[in-house]
């Protein structure tokens, strides 16, 4: 029995605790919302955001600069959505917004008010994995796993869009997700298999 297991406190749980503490400290004062009046008064620092995430309705008061990615990770502890580059270059933060794949790091949380977000945590049906998740396991479509959640979210959308006719087409339409372990052949094979299963 390892020391980690006996202590019943994983590294992730420690990180979550400190992230929550930091989150509390950065919430803007409620009084920052100004009354509507002149055009200048329309601009606010604290934004009310109502958003459906993985089927659950959430309400937040958020600083303007909070991205959807930070909202998911820091406020909801949905850490499956990864912060890789935080510049829209790697695809590790790919989520579905109203069913379409997007980079969560390139969206202000304030802008998704009233919309519907699906993350990797929302794919499985209870204990039953999503077909794309199963295909990634069956095809060994990862090594270190850091990009995997983004790859799977992107693959779900890629299949729904119908961009899976050939291996070349899959690779082109999966090119927004970088894998530094270069598991690309296995990833493309997993997407192809999952697309066939769906068809």
């Amino acid at each position: 029995m390892s020391e980690h297991e006996t202590k019943k406190l994983s590294r992730r749980e420690v990180m979550r605790g400190s992230a929550m503490a930091a989150g509390v400290a950065t919430i803007a004062p409620v009084g920052a919302t100004q009354a509507a009046g002149s055009m200048a008064d329309r601009f606010v620092q604290s934004n009310h955001v109502a958003v459906e995430i993985n089927g659950v309705e959430h309400q937040f008061e958020l600083e303007s600069r909070v991205t959807l990615l930070d909202l998911l990770r820091e406020r909801l502890q949905l850490t499956g959505t990864k912060k890789g580059c935080n510049r829209g270059e790697c695809g590790a933060c790919t989520v579905l917004l109203d069913g379409r794949r997007v980079n969560a790091c390139l969206l202000l949380a304030a802008s998704v008010n009233g919309r519907r977000v699906t993350t990797i945590e929302g794919l499985a049906d209870g204990p039953r994995l999503h077909p794309v998740q199963r295909a990634f396991i069956e095809h060994d479509a990862f090594q270190c796993g850091f990009c995997t959640c983004g790859q799977i979210m992107s693959a779900v959308a890629c299949i729904a869009e119908g961009h899976t006719d050939t291996n070349t087409e899959i690779r082109e339409w999966m090119s927004g997700n970088i894998c530094r372990c270069a598991a690309y052949p296995q990833i493309a094979a997993a997407v192809e298999a999952a697309a066939r299963e769906k068809a």
Partner: peptide
């Protein structure tokens, strides 16, 4: 990223008025 204040434009005319603010 430094914080900023944010407004959602409601219409095209609204967007032009808001974007013309200093």
């Amino acid at each position: 990223m430094r914080d900023f204040s944010y407004a959602q434009a409601k219409s095209r005319a609204d967007a032009i008025l808001l974007s013309g603010q200093p």
